[in-house]
Amino acid sequence: MGYGLWFGLFVFIGTSLCQGQNREEREHRIRKSQFPTVQLDSLAIGPRIKQKRYYKEVDSLQTTYIFKFKKDRLHYFLSYDDTGNLITSGFRVNEIDIPEETYQKIEGYLSDTYEKFRIKRIFHEYPVVNTESDTPDLSDTFQNLMLPGNAYKLIVFVKNSTGRGELDLWFKADGSLIRKRPALPMNHDRILY
């Protein structure tokens, strides 16, 4: 067999694999000057925030800017769009922080769907919707309220007969699955080999 046949086969397989890709995202850290100008509610956030970090998440549909910080031993995040409008807010939680019935439904779904799974991180998300005014209401996030419109985002390492990988799963407050997508590995472009 000639090199042309092998090269043609390699190109065919490579293009067929690339066309079947799902929505991919990449998150990387940026400077504060690259972050869109936003109005942070200083009364809701308060003066005692630490570890301020700014991120830009790019995927095939949109660009999201994420402000991460630590306040009162909790790791919070605020997600913004390109124009500086608040999309979601939330914080990182443990299994014990989720209501027992909800966690049992989530765990039941994972055990029924996958042979093995390991939950890496759980985030409690609040959709930011305020119909009375144009300014977003962050008071629910910082009071850690359990509301029916909340969602839980889980980053889970799964293994089954088709393979293994990392998934991002979103569940409603009652434990039903909203959506899932494969998670990309960490971006290590800064490392030189």
Rank of each mutant, 00 (worst) to 15 (best):
S89G: 15
G165M: 02
R53E: 15
L138E: 05
P127K: 09
H28C: 07
K172M: 13
E107K: 11
K116P: 00
Q62W: 01
Q104G: 07
Y54C: 02
K172A: 11
E95N: 14
G175E: 00
P136Q: 01
K68A: 06
D81W: 04
N160Y: 08
S42F: 03
E107T: 14
D82L: 11
D97E: 11
L110V: 06
Q19R: 15
V58R: 13
N22M: 11
D137G: 00
Q104I: 13
A151T: 15
G14S: 14
K153R: 12
S79F: 05
R179S: 15
R73Y: 13
E132W: 11
M1Q: 10
S111T: 15
D97Q: 08
L5P: 01
E27N: 08
V156L: 03
D168C: 03
F117Q: 09
V11P: 05
F157W: 13
G165L: 06
M146D: 08
V129P: 03
H124R: 14
D59G: 06
A183K: 15
Y193D: 11
I106V: 08
L5E: 11
E57R: 06
E115S: 15
P99Y: 02
I122L: 01
R31K: 12
D112Y: 07
R121F: 10
L78H: 05
Q21P: 01
L43I: 12
Q104F: 10
R92D: 08
L138K: 08
E166F: 06
T15P: 00
S111N: 03
G14R: 04
A44H: 03
N160S: 15
M146H: 12
S79Y: 01
N22A: 14
I119C: 00
F10C: 12
E101D: 07
K71R: 15
N85S: 11
S60M: 12
D41N: 14
M1C: 06
T131N: 10
R179G: 06
D97T: 08
F67N: 01
S176F: 09
N160T: 05
T37Q: 14
D112C: 04
T113R: 13
A173E: 09
F171E: 06
E25Q: 14
E101C: 00
D134E: 13
Q39R: 08
I49R: 02
Y109W: 07
I98E: 04
S111D: 04
E24R: 13
S89W: 04
F91S: 03
S161N: 08
K153C: 12
S111Y: 00
T37Y: 07
G90M: 03
L40E: 05
N130G: 02
G175Y: 04
L43K: 14
D168H: 09
I45M: 03
V11N: 04
S111F: 09
T83H: 12
L147Q: 02
F35K: 09
Q19H: 13
P148C: 07
F67G: 01
R23N: 15
F142E: 04
L17K: 13
G8E: 05
I155V: 12
I66Q: 10
L110Q: 08
R179V: 09
A183E: 09
G46D: 09
I178T: 10
R73T: 02
F123A: 04
H28Y: 10
F10W: 11
Q39T: 14
Q21I: 09
I178V: 14
A151E: 09
Q51S: 11
T64P: 00
T131W: 02
N130W: 07
